[in-house]
Design a protein around this nucleic acid. Structure first.
Lengths: 209, 209
DNA sequence: CTTATTTTGTGAAAAATGGTACAAAGTTTG
DNA sequence: CAAACTTTGTACCATTTTTCACAAAATAAG
C-alpha cells in the first residue's frame, strides 16, 4: 500500500485536499465525501480516493471521510508543523523579495543563513540573517543544520552554487535560477521558473485555435 | 505531424532547449546533437528528438541540429518577440512585487491595467498603470485589448475575479491565489503556487529514507 | 567510391497516470 | 431488521508520456 511509488502529482494534490478540508473543518462540517472534495477541487472523485489510497484507508463506506481525521492525517503525511532551516544564496532583487515573503515562515521554513559573493553586501542583515561570504558556506551550513538551500543567483553561477551547497550538506534545493542543474540522485531539487510560466502563456496565445 | 496533440511537458521543455541552444549559439558553436542537448538539460536524447519531432524536422542525420536554425525555429514556435497586454487584479504585496519583476517586460508582457477593490489605492500608479476600481474592469479590458489577466487577490475572492476577467474577455489567466478555480474549457489557466512548492520540499524531507 | 561512423526521426514497447466500474461495507429508512 | 441507498477502496482498463531500438540519411575515413 504505502510501498508503491507515489506520483508527484498526488503529492501536489494532497496539499489541495488539505487546503479544502481545512476550510471545511472551519465550517464545522464533520464529514465529506470524495465526490464533494472532487467538486471543490475540480478533480474527479476517483482521483481523490486513489490519491488518498496511497497512504492508507481514511474513509468510511456510506458516509465518507471524517474531516478532522482527514485533516490531521494529511498534515502528518505532508509534514505540516515541522520546521526546517534554510539558507539563501544570492541576495539580489529576487532573493530579497523572497525573504520578505511571509509564506516562508508559515510553511515552516526558517531562514538561518544568507550568502552573497558581493563584498559590499557582506555583514548586512536580511530577514534576520547576516549576509556572509560564500566561502563560509560549508561551516555555516553544518553549524546551523541547514537542510534546504535556495538559489537566487544568476544562471551562470547556479551550478557552482548548487555543488557547494550539496558538498556542504544540504538535502534539498529550491532553484530560482533559469538553468538546468545537475545534482546527485539523493538530492531533491525543485525548479521554480516564473519565466517559463509566463512563456507558456505566450505559447498558448500564439497557438490557440 | 503538427496535428497530433502536444504534451504539456513538451512545451515546457522547449523553453529549456531554447535557453540551452541560445547559450550554445553564443559560444559560436554551429551544430549540436540531441545527445549533447540532452546532457546539458538532464533529459534523454530520445526525449529531445521526440519533443522537436512534434514540430517538424529540424535535424540532419549524421551531424545534428544547426544551432542558429534551431534557435530561430524554437523562437517562432514559442512566440518569442510577440507582446501581450496584461492586467493585474489585486495590488497588494505580491501584486506589487510582480509588477516590479523585470522578467515581465522581457517576456513580452505589457502591463496596461491594474485593479483593486480597496478605494484608497484607486488612482495610484503602479508599473505604469493607474489602479482602477474593479467595476471598470469590463470596459478597460476591452478598450485596452487585454488578453492575460493576473490574479493576486486573496483566495476567497479569486473565483469571483476570474469570472469577471473571463466575462470581460481575457483568454488566459495566471493565478497566484492558492485556490482551485473553475474556468471554461477555452480559457487557459495557469496556477503558480509558491506555497505548494515550499510544502513539497517539506514533504520530501519528512518522507525521505 | 566503398565502408564505417554518426545521428536523426519514428514506429513499437514500456511505464506512468488517470478513469471506470463494481463488490464490499457502512448508513438510512420504514 | 430488511431493503434501499451511499460511498469507499481497488482491480481492471484506457490514455498519455517516455523510452527503446532501428532503418534511413548524412558524414567521415580510408
Amino acid at each position: 500500500m504505502s510501498n508503491r511509488k507515489i506520483p508527484e502529482g498526488t503529492i501536489s494534490r494532497l496539499f489541495i485536499y488539505l487546503r479544502e478540508v481545512t476550510s471545511i473543518v472551519n465550517m464545522n462540517i464533520r464529514t465529506v465525501s470524495s465526490a464533494e472534495l472532487g467538486d471543490r477541487t475540480n478533480l474527479s472523485d476517483a482521483q481523490v480516493r486513489k490519491d488518498l489510497g496511497y497512504f492508507g484507508q481514511f474513509g468510511v463506506s456510506g458516509s465518507g471521510y471524517d474531516t478532522q481525521e482527514l485533516k490531521a492525517a494529511l498534515e502528518k503525511i505532508l509534514g505540516k508543523g515541522k520546521t526546517w532551516n534554510v539558507a539563501v544564496v544570492g541576495v539580489g532583487h529576487l532573493g530579497s523579495a523572497l525573504l520578505a515573503y511571509s509564506g516562508f515562515k508559515e510553511h515552516g521554513l526558517n531562514l538561518v543563513a544568507a550568502f552573497d559573493s558581493e563584498s559590499k553586501k557582506i555583514g548586512k542583515n536580511v530577514g534576520g540573517a547576516t549576509i556572509q561570504p560564500i566561502e563560509e558556506m560549508p561551516k555555516a551550513i553544518r553549524d546551523k543544520k541547514v537542510s534546504i538551500g535556495i538559489i537566487t543567483v544568476p544562471a551562470e553561477s547556479a551550478q557552482e552554487v548548487a555543488d557547494r551547497l550539496i558538498s556542504s550538506g544540504v538535502e534539498c534545493i529550491l532553484n530560482f535560477a533559469p538553468a538546468s542543474l545537475n545534482v546527485p540522485e539523493n538530492i531533491k531539487i525543485k525548479d521554480v521558473d516564473l519565466s517559463r510560466e509566463l512563456e507558456t502563456l505566450s505559447y498558448f496565445l500564439v497557438n490557440k485555435k
